[in-house]
Amino acid sequence: MMQLENLQPYAIVEDGPFLRIIFDHSYISLLVDEKSYQFIPAESSEIFINKELNKVHNLFDVFTFEKGEEILHVTVIDLMHMKQFRTQLQQIIHTFYEKRTMIPVAEVETIVQELEKENILRLIDRAIDEGEEHSFLELTNRLSEYGGKVEE
């Protein structure tokens, strides 16, 4: 019986339609018949994830593990049959995308305020064009909340 002991990427790289999860020595370890086998990058050392489909692309690539003189060859598809492996791989992918898309709250708030200010300016222009004095006065008061000024 094969169990996952450790799964940690050496690097994660976006490469066109793929997300490449790269492994190096000791970044993966398996427990087979109560023996711990360490990953060695002899044949394959990467898992390719199709970003659009969120599926593993290189299922038939072979990963090599060793324990002393014993060598174990395991295909990516065999690794994918282990629930622990699938779960940890999904966590790695999720963490990568989460880190990549993090935007500071203060930055988001600044952008939203700028968009609101620009929208008020457009509405002021429309109120002027349509001769809506009441809307114009209301909008210019709102604009002052954003530190904006109406240009004369």
Rank of each mutant, 00 (worst) to 15 (best):
Arg100Cys: 11
Arg100Tyr: 10
Thr101Asp: 13
Thr101Pro: 06
Thr101Gly: 12
Thr101Asn: 15
Thr101His: 14
Met102Gly: 07
Met102Gln: 14
Met102Trp: 14
Ile103Ala: 04
Ile103Thr: 14
Ile103Ser: 05
Ile103Met: 06
Ile103Asp: 05
Ile103Gln: 08
Pro104Thr: 08
Pro104Trp: 10
Val105Gln: 13
Val105His: 12
Ala106Val: 12
Ala106Ser: 13
Glu107Phe: 06
Glu107Thr: 11
Glu107Asn: 09
Val108Asp: 06
Glu109Ser: 11
Glu109Thr: 08
Glu109Trp: 04
Glu109Phe: 07
Glu109Ile: 07
Thr110His: 14
Thr110Leu: 14
Thr110Val: 13
Ile111Ser: 11
Ile111Asp: 08
Ile111Arg: 14
Ile111Cys: 05
Val112Trp: 05
Val112Ile: 15
Val112Pro: 05
Val112Ala: 09
Gln113Trp: 06
Gln113His: 14
Gln113Pro: 04
Gln113Leu: 13
Leu115Asn: 12
Glu116Pro: 01
Glu116Thr: 02
Glu116Asp: 08
Lys117Ala: 06
Lys117Phe: 03
Lys117Gln: 07
Glu118Asn: 11
Glu118Thr: 08
Asn119Arg: 10
Asn119Gln: 09
Asn119Ser: 12
Asn119Trp: 05
Ile120Leu: 15
Ile120Val: 08
Ile120Trp: 04
Leu121Gln: 05
Leu121Pro: 00
Leu121Ile: 06
Arg122Glu: 09
Leu123Thr: 03
Leu123Ser: 06
Leu123Val: 03
Leu123Arg: 12
Ile124Ala: 02
Ile124Tyr: 02
Asp125Ile: 00
Asp125Thr: 04
Arg126Lys: 15
Arg126Cys: 06
Arg126Trp: 09
Arg126Met: 13
Arg126Gly: 03
Ala127Val: 00
Ile128Met: 01
Ile128Gly: 00
Asp129Glu: 12
Asp129Gln: 07
Glu130Asp: 10
Glu130Lys: 09
Gly131Ser: 03
Gly131Tyr: 00
Glu132Thr: 00
Glu132Gly: 04
Glu133His: 01
Glu133Ile: 04
His134Ser: 09
Ser135Pro: 01
Ser135Tyr: 01
